[in-house]
Computed example of a mutant assay.
Amino acid sequence: MADAANGRHIAIVTGSALGLGYELTRRLIAKGWFVAGIDFNAERQAALADEFPADQYRGFVGDVSDEAFARESVAEIAGLGHIDLLINNAGQPSFKKPTAYEAADVDKCLKGLKGMILWSVETLKADGERDLKIANVMSTAATRGNANESVYCATKWGEKGYTQSLKAAYKGSSVKIVGVYPGGIDTAFYRDSHDYVSEEKQHTFMDPGQLADVILFNLVNDANLTVSDILIERNYV
């Protein structure tokens, strides 16, 4: 396993099994990257192991907010070589009117923030805090308040605060931090919230493949520059 990456760029993508995470994963692989994909969906991880050769993709099954899982997985990935890119994409939503939220909903939304912190910390340590790009995929919910997303927005604003703090901490270094703020995406992300986001409305949202193309166009290139914030809205027709 130590030579699985074969000297190629190594990326970690959390939430790699479905939606935007999957589209980012397969596009990175098409660009010649080795991707370590992180997801709790064991069935989908098994399918990705069949879809991609072992020298292109390695799946890790677990909860991104589990500290031991993050530490052990990053250590194993770092054994393949220097980690060039971490995309913190994993997260779970909860869309309800303010008085409908319960503690379980808060915990669910907080998993994304906790995972973002844990995977960033472990990857930074594994890389010796150098030559690393961290892209934190959040939402336009991190830029405004939404009536039926109060807890979801709260966690996204927390992720934005963490992202901005990382930028300040590593300003002028070889660690580059990118905040990614996409609007609504046409994926199963909204499947439990059709009282709030109807299927008809959902299908007017952004295509995850097109969104992945835009993100990677800005994130992975040969230019001697870094796009530090990527705000992407869908076209309204």
Rank of each mutant, 00 (worst) to 15 (best):
G184E: 06
E149M: 15
L211D: 03
V178A: 03
N221P: 01
N218D: 11
D207Y: 05
V151T: 03
S150E: 07
F217Q: 13
F189I: 13
Q202N: 15
K156W: 02
P182Q: 02
R130Q: 15
V137W: 03
S139W: 05
W157C: 08
P208A: 04
A147P: 00
V137L: 09
V180Q: 00
G172R: 02
N218T: 04
M206C: 07
R144W: 00
A142C: 06
S228R: 12
K171N: 14
G158S: 07
F217V: 11
K201S: 14
A141C: 14
S150K: 00
F189G: 07
A135H: 04
S193V: 06
D207F: 05
N146W: 09
Q164M: 10
K160I: 09
M206V: 13
A168R: 13
K160S: 08
G172F: 05
N146A: 09
R144P: 10
F205G: 00
K160N: 12
K201C: 12
T204N: 09
A169G: 09
N221K: 00
G172H: 07
N218M: 06
A147T: 14
S174M: 03
T140N: 14
A168W: 09
D222N: 11
H194Y: 15
V151Y: 03
G183I: 03
D195F: 04
K160W: 04
V197C: 12
E159R: 03
H203L: 12
G183L: 04
E200W: 00
D127L: 09
K133A: 06
T187K: 05
G172C: 07
E149I: 08
K176V: 03
G158R: 01
R191P: 06
G184L: 07
I177F: 01
Q210C: 09
V214N: 05
L216W: 00
G184M: 13
R130N: 08
G145I: 12
K201A: 10
K171D: 15
V227P: 01
V180L: 06
K156V: 05
D229T: 03
A188P: 13
E129D: 14
S228M: 09
E159F: 07
V227A: 03
F205C: 12
G145W: 03
M138I: 13
V227L: 08
M206I: 12
D222I: 02
D195M: 02
M138F: 11
A142L: 02
K176W: 10
G183H: 07
C153G: 05
N148L: 06
D222A: 10
V178C: 02
L219D: 00
I185S: 09
T163M: 12
T187W: 08
A212W: 02
T140F: 08
